[in-house]
Simulated scan of single mutants.
Amino acid sequence: MSIDYDGRRFRKLGGGDGTCAEYHQRGDLVWAVFEGGRVRRGTITGTCDAAGVLRLAYTMVLDTGEVIAGHSTNSPQRHGGTLVLREVWERYGEHAETGVSYLEEIPAAVPAGVAR
């Protein structure tokens, strides 16, 4: 599944807490900035392989002032017409934890006056 992530936006599956990431891509290099919900600001940087799998490092600052760092491997899946990333993540240091999350693509906004 070859995917160009440039300009795509993702949030936690089901809408989440309002955190939204906007991805950019140049060749196999991928990066994003995210914020919302409890996240004041976060960044992601990594690579994308030919199958669309992302290998990423991330940092974020929460509304509590906590700084979180970790890495994840995100595998693309299709659910209906929606692109979903299965994210296997690990946090480092005092916030050490592992888990699996799902991120869904946020559809591009439809301009006013355009029928769906």
Results as ranks from 00 to 15, higher is better:
94 E>T: 08
61 V>E: 12
76 P>E: 12
81 G>M: 03
113 G>M: 09
92 Y>T: 13
64 T>W: 07
24 H>D: 06
56 L>C: 13
89 W>D: 05
100 V>Q: 05
37 G>N: 13
15 G>H: 02
13 L>K: 05
40 R>W: 03
62 L>N: 10
92 Y>A: 15
20 C>G: 01
47 T>K: 02
30 V>Q: 04
93 G>E: 10
65 G>D: 08
76 P>S: 13
42 G>C: 04
81 G>R: 06
50 A>Q: 13
85 L>A: 05
67 V>Q: 01
113 G>K: 13
54 L>R: 12
39 V>Y: 09
88 V>T: 13
39 V>M: 14
99 G>W: 05
52 G>S: 09
5 Y>N: 03
14 G>V: 00
98 T>R: 01
57 A>P: 06
113 G>H: 10
20 C>V: 10
1 M>L: 13
61 V>T: 14
63 D>N: 09
71 H>C: 14
89 W>K: 12
41 R>T: 07
79 H>D: 05
2 S>R: 09
72 S>Q: 06
49 D>T: 09
2 S>W: 11
31 W>E: 14
86 R>K: 15
17 D>L: 11
57 A>E: 15
75 S>R: 14
48 C>M: 12
1 M>A: 14
104 E>V: 01
13 L>E: 13
62 L>P: 03
20 C>P: 01
68 I>R: 12
63 D>P: 13
35 E>M: 10
30 V>A: 03
26 R>I: 11
93 G>W: 15
94 E>K: 15
91 R>L: 10
65 G>P: 05
97 E>W: 01
101 S>A: 08
77 Q>D: 11
18 G>A: 06
66 E>I: 00
7 G>P: 00
72 S>I: 09
57 A>C: 12
77 Q>S: 12
10 F>W: 01
1 M>W: 09
52 G>R: 01
115 A>C: 07
75 S>I: 11
2 S>F: 06
46 G>T: 12
61 V>M: 11
37 G>I: 09
93 G>M: 12
70 G>R: 07
107 P>Y: 02
78 R>L: 11
100 V>F: 09
46 G>Q: 06
44 I>M: 08
50 A>I: 00
84 V>H: 00
59 T>S: 10
10 F>G: 00
28 D>V: 04
56 L>N: 08
30 V>Y: 00
108 A>K: 11
47 T>I: 05
105 E>D: 02
114 V>R: 10
38 R>I: 06
10 F>Y: 10
49 D>Q: 06
